[in-house]
């Protein structure tokens, strides 16, 4: 079970207290009624399925109830950082690669093998 740092409670709490809420930093257009089909498609339907660092929204639903943002690595499943809703996307350098002397298990190489 992951521990997730709530930026409002300023505490690490078990993941059972939290619920994911999809991608972060997708701004709902203020003129949403007037946007084109293509713009609506991009806003509402199209999402990347990133291998690596993703920016997500989470809610501390069984805690303070606040929505916040998190940067998480989808390969290691590690939360790199969490930050309050409304703050800009933090600049994070990519996670270090495993050294060459280690042996990858199948999972880690999945999708890479030709």
């Amino acid at each position: 079970m992951l521990l997730i740092h709530c930026p409002y409670c300023e505490e690490e709490r078990p993941e059972l207290e939290f619920r994911g809420a999809g991608d972060a930093h997708i701004l709902r257009p203020t003129n949403i009624a007037d946007i084109s089909d293509e713009e609506f498609e991009a806003f509402f339907f199209l999402r990347d399925n990133v291998k690596g660092l993703v920016y997500e929204r989470w809610r501390h639903i069984h805690g303070c109830g606040r929505f916040f943002n998190a940067a998480r690595d989808t390969v290691s499943d590690k939360f790199v950082t969490t930050y309050k809703a409304g703050l800009p996307r933090p600049d994070l350098s990519p996670a270090p690669k495993a050294t060459e002397t280690t042996v990858e298990t199948y999972e880690a190489t999945e999708g890479v093998a030709g």
Binding site: S76, A98, T99, T102, V103, T105, A108
Partner: peptide, 23 residues
């Protein structure tokens, strides 16, 4: 160790997979 997502390394001398990089 492997469940903890640590990466094993192969020791050719002993023919063993051993803890390599800790996660």
């Amino acid at each position: 160790f492997s469940q903890s997502r640590g990466k094993v390394a192969y020791n050719a001398e002993t023919g063993q997979f051993l803890p390599g990089t800790y996660a």
